[in-house]
């Protein structure tokens, strides 16, 4: 009896805690979004963050895209060739990448490279009282520090995803045509005929925008709410990557079901 009561009580406490932290993170998000005006008025802040969030993630996105494109092309070829359908290789490579792999892997890599760095940076600024000192200098750290980083992430990931798509498809083409001897004309014409800009490419980009929003939100929120100790910052960084990965994969299923299932 007592055990059951404790069990119910702990469920209740868990639900209340979860709702409270959801509420905190939403009100934090609203504050960040209110910083949009300041970001527009001072584009130099945004440009700096786009450099450290986006440009510095280019390399890992670029090389991952090359390898992923090659692997998809190679695996696709070995399957398609059994049915004599290797002309469809272009279609297979481009659809897999555009609809699924570029947005999802791009976002996962982005959260590992840029999201974790954002969390650690903001968390450290909190632990060393830099954020509190800004508040006392009458500078709102949410608008001055967090908002530019959030919008930089929101802009960078979709662009990185588009780069992932292009590089991936091209490296898939190189493997298919240069190594496996698939006809180049067939490869590209299949893509041209069957990949729809609105349905496939736009939906892939929409996915990446949703992921960018969620990943950057999680990253800055975890940093801003880290316990102001070294242990707290390291835990926040881990949480940032783990929660981002779960959110990306969960949302990916929902979005895929909405966009492509019918």
């Amino acid at each position: 009896m007592n055990g059951l009561f404790n069990f119910l009580q702990s469920i209740g406490a868990f639900v209340i805690d979860s709702l409270a932290s959801l509420g905190r993170s939403v009100s934090f998000l609203i504050n960040v979004l209110l910083g949009f005006k300041e970001v527009v008025l001072r584009p130099s802040l945004l440009v700096r963050e786009i450099y450290s969030v986006g440009v510095l993630s280019l390399l890992i996105i670029f090389f991952s895209a090359i390898f992923v494109g090659m692997v998809v092309s190679l695996l696709g070829y070995t399957i398609l060739v059994d049915f004599g359908g290797e002309e469809s290789l272009g279609l297979l490579v481009s659809l897999t990448l555009v609809r699924e792999l570029a947005p999802v892997l791009g976002a996962l890599l982005f959260s590992g490279r840029a999201g974790s760095a954002l969390t650690a940076e903001i968390g450290l600024m909190k632990a060393t009282e830099q954020l509190a000192s800004m508040e006392m200098m009458a500078v709102d750290p949410v608008r001055r520090i967090v908002a530019p980083r959030f919008f930089a992430g929101l802009i960078s990931l979709p662009i990185l995803t588009i780069i992932f798509m292009a590089v991936g498809v091209y490296s898939g083409y190189l493997v298919g045509s240069e190594w496996k001897g698939v006809d180049a004309g067939a490869f590209w014409s299949q893509i041209q005929n069957k990949v729809e800009f609105r349905h496939d490419i736009i939906n892939g980009i929409i996915k990446s925008i949703v992921f960018a929003f969620v990943v950057t939100w999680i990253a800055v929120y975890q940093g801003y709410n880290a316990m102001p100790t070294s242990e707290g910052v390291s835990r926040a960084t881990t949480n940032s990557v783990v929660y981002s990965a779960l959110a990306i994969l969960g949302l990916d299923f929902v979005l895929t079901a909405i966009m492509f299932a019918s």
Binding site: M125, T128, E129, Q130, S133, M136, M137, A138, D140
Partner: peptide
């Protein structure tokens, strides 16, 4: 509040300089 804070200075324990 932000206006009022412009007239308050605070020295933090760690200094809290922007690194």
């Amino acid at each position: 509040l932000y206006l009022a804070r412009r007239k308050m200075g605070m020295l933090f324990q760690s200094g809290a300089l922007l690194t």
